[in-house]
Design a protein around this nucleic acid. Structure first.
Length: 545
RNA sequence: GGGGCGGUAGCUCAGCCGGUUAGAGCAAGGGACUCAUAAUCCCUCGGUCGUGGGUUCGAGUCCCACCCGCCCUACCA
């Protein structure tokens, strides 16, 4: 997949004068099914984060991909009468990649766990651990459902009633499970309990938010058990090099994507310049794999540990986690068809604190779209461009009469930039957008107070200078907003950039440094301002649901 | 069973180590304005802070019990 432009490792072979890339990952998604809102939520967040960092001029690497091994994929493929690989190919090409393109995700790479660059390196990795004595052969005993042909987790089982009173039943088949054992290879994870605890203590920001950190700490403090890392009851997976009768446990396989995708064992220069990840974005459900198993694996291999594992919350509908089985499933396309891609990206970043569960609804989306995007922001761009067109024939005039009101806006923009920047750094997207839209509100208020439409009737030199100053101030404010909103709403920000005639003087929008966005007076007088299309048209009608 | 999180205006949420009349945004009502996407700006309305006790001079804010929602985890083998 094409890189987004600013990241170019080829220019600095070996040396990397620019230092290590800011490396962000999403989980690799299980191709068992098509992507849903939750996947898109994580991926959009990572995209906003990495676009922001790119606009700070940093070298960035944003990785996503798909997890294609495991029994569920195999079974789904069988049900559909195709091989697992064919099934994965189909979903990746017709569902996953198209959705990321649709949502304007600028990932630098897309890894699939069935690719050779992954499977071969994974085999080398586990062979290395095996040679080091980190992996041993043992046997696993657990409840097994004959109907499912797989081991169940004790927590998945349900209590039997009636003729099965006192027994544990498979939740799918409703029949008693039996205890079976199979030979497995185990990773000596128990040996890493103390080292992990020390690591967490030394790196208090490693797991965020705090609620997630607490859960992991409590879990690890109970002491870790060795991890079964192989299966021999099915074969859709990566074979253990020393015992091909076993395939690697899908999670060990999956976690290693973060290393294999950036050159582990294949391209040392790229690996050194990228690994480890600065931020692993994960959902709460897979926190433990990333905050416990993955670091333990890296410790065993002697590799550096990631900077941060950030567990975001669930999207809730009516207080419940979204799921198709509960008929609350809404596809990303249903939302983007109605609201547009940029509004979609904006909405989830703005409405829900990253790291917490958040309620989402069609009504809330509609309300925010109308109030924040159309009325506050879109209309601001519209009224400013209209007045520059009406009073100055579309040529941006110079500000020559700055007063307290203007200076207040200069300072407000600088503050918004500074504050938003630090909040994005902490993955507080909601807070950052709060800062940006607080500034939007100030600019609207500024126009209402200065009443340029009244000043325009004053044809004296002072009056015209005043009018010019007001409109320049408003337009320059929009220039700052275009830069700040580009990582979140790239298509819209680009429209605004074009409307301001900024590119001719300042260059391409993505090249604007976010840390300079608050520097006043960048948009030059003489720029050609055009009204352009409405950024956020009013929504036609409320869709019933 | 154990642990965690949450229950604050119609809606979504802020309220740090307890301290004057509990805040914001949206929605609703009124006013101002007309450059603009019938948009903007100002004002107003609106809460027994899940329930019941307790500690304290004073509790949304600490303690106990309970109710409701969600999450993690265990087990009676």
């Amino acid at each position: 997949m094409a890189a987004s432009g600013s990241t170019d490792l080829s220019t600095t072979p070996g040396g990397h004068a620019g230092g290590k890339a800011y490396y962000v990952s999403t989980p690799i998604y299980y191709v068992n099914d098509a992507p849903h809102l939750g996947h898109a939520y994580t991926t959009v967040a990572g995209d906003v984060l990495t676009r922001w960092h790119r606009q700070r001029g940093e070298k960035v690497w944003y990785l996503t991909g798909t997890d294609e091994h495991g029994q569920k994929v195999m079974r789904t493929a069988q049900t559909n009468g195709v091989t697992p690989k064919e099934w994965a190919d189909r979903l990746v090409e017709t569902a996953w990649k198209p959705l990321w393109e649709h949502l304007e995700i600028a990932n630098d790479d897309f890894i699939r766990t069935t690719q050779e660059r992954h499977t071969h390196r994974v085999q080398e990795f586990v062979q290395d651990l095996y040679d080091k004595g980190e992996i041993y052969k043992g046997s696993y005993e657990g409840p097994y459902c004959v109907g499912c042909e797989e081991f169940k987790l004790p927590g998945d089982l349900i209590d039997g009633t009636g003729e099965y009173e006192g027994q544990k039943l498979c939740p799918i088949h409703g029949r008693p499970v039996e205890m079976l054992s199979e030979d497995n290879y185990f990773f000596r994870m128990s040996a890493y309990t103390e080292r992990l605890l020390e690591f967490y203590a030394a790196n208090p920001d490693f797991i965020q938010p705090a609620s997630a950190r607490n859960e992991v700490l409590k879990f690890v403090q109970q002491g870790l058990q060795d991890l079964s890392i192989s299966r021999s009851t099915f074969d859709w997976g990566i074979k253990l090099p020393w015992d091909p009768a076993h395939v690697l446990y899908v999670w060990v396989d999956a976690l290693l994507n973060y290393a294999t995708a950036v050159g582990y064992g294949a391209d040392q220069a790229k690996f050194d310049a990228t690994f480890p990840a600065d931020v692993h974005l994960v959902g709460k459900d897979i926190l433990r794999f990333h905050a416990v198993i993955w670091p333990a694996m890296l410790m065993a291999a002697g590799l550096p540990l990631p900077g941060k594992v950030f567990a975001h919350g669930w999207l809730l509908v009516g207080g419940e986690k979204m799921s198709k089985s509960k008929l609350t499933g809404i596809s990303p396309h249903q939302l983007t068809d109605h609201f547009g891609v940029d509004a979609y990206r904006y909405y989830f970043m703005r409405a829900i604190p990253f790291g917490q569960d958040g309620s989402f609804s069609w009504e809330d989306f509609t309300a925010r779209y109308t109030s924040e995007l159309a009325n506050d922001f879109g209309n601001l761009a519209s009224r400013v461009a209209a007045m520059v067109g009406k009073y100055f024939d579309g040529t941006l005039p110079a500000a020559t009469a700055d007063g307290p009101a203007e200076e207040a806006l200069h300072a407000a923009l600088a503050n918004a930039v500074k504050s938003a920047d630090s909040k994005v750094e902490q993955l507080d997207f909601q807070g950052a957008l709060d800062d940006v839209f607080g500034f939007v509100k100030l600019v609207n208020g500024y126009l209402t107070e200065q009443e340029p439409w009244k000043v325009a009737k004053d044809t004296s030199e002072e009056g015209q200078a005043r009018l010019a100053t007001i409109l320049y101030t408003a337009a320059e404010s929009l220039r700052g907003l275009a830069v700040l909103l580009n990582p979140v709403m790239p298509a819209t920000a680009e429209k605004l950039w074009a409307s301001l005639g900024a590119e001719a003087h300042l260059g391409a929008l993505p090249a604007q440094r976010v840390q300079d966005a608050g520097t006043w007076g960048q948009l030059p007088a003489g720029a050609t301002v055009t009204k352009g299309e409405i950024l956020f048209p009013r929504l036609e009608e409320k869709k019933d649901s």
